[in-house]
Structure formats: C-alpha cells, structure tokens
Amino acid sequence: MSLQLFLLLAAGLFAIGLYGALSQQSIVMIMMGLELMLNGVIVAAGRLPTGR
C-alpha cells in the first residue's frame, strides 16, 4: 500500500482533530480533538519508517 494513502489518512484525521480542538468549548471535547490528532500521528508514524 502506498505511503501517500496512509499519510493522507493521517492528515485527514489530524485535520478533523484540529477542527474539534479549535471549535469545542468543553475541555473533554477538546481532549477528544487532541486524541484524534494523536490518532493521525500514530497512523503516520506506523507507516513512515518503511519508506516508499
């Protein structure tokens, strides 16, 4: 599977989480946004070391 697809998914998860972290007012929901950003980082970090 191509690296670009995985990184695109990671970028999507990161951007959705960023939206949540910026737009939510309660601390628990901001946490959920941060978790989603972390999810994106996990996906990217899992795929990146294997290279192209």
Partner: peptide, 29 residues
C-alpha cells in the same frame, strides 16, 4: 458547546490541504 466554527473549519481545511500538498510533493525515500 462550540465556538468559532467557521474559522476552525477554515484552519482545519487549510492545514489538511497543506499537508496533502506536502505528501504528494515530497520525494519520499
């Protein structure tokens, strides 16, 4: 329980587009 949704959406979409551009522009080793 939200605030500033349009700007948050704009920032999020912009960051996604920037990341996507980088993903396809970088020659991954």
């Amino acid at each position: 329980m939200t605030h500033n949704k349009p700007r948050a959406r704009a920032i999020s979409v912009t960051s996604f587009l920037l990341l996507a551009a980088g993903i396809f522009a970088v020659p991954w080793p």
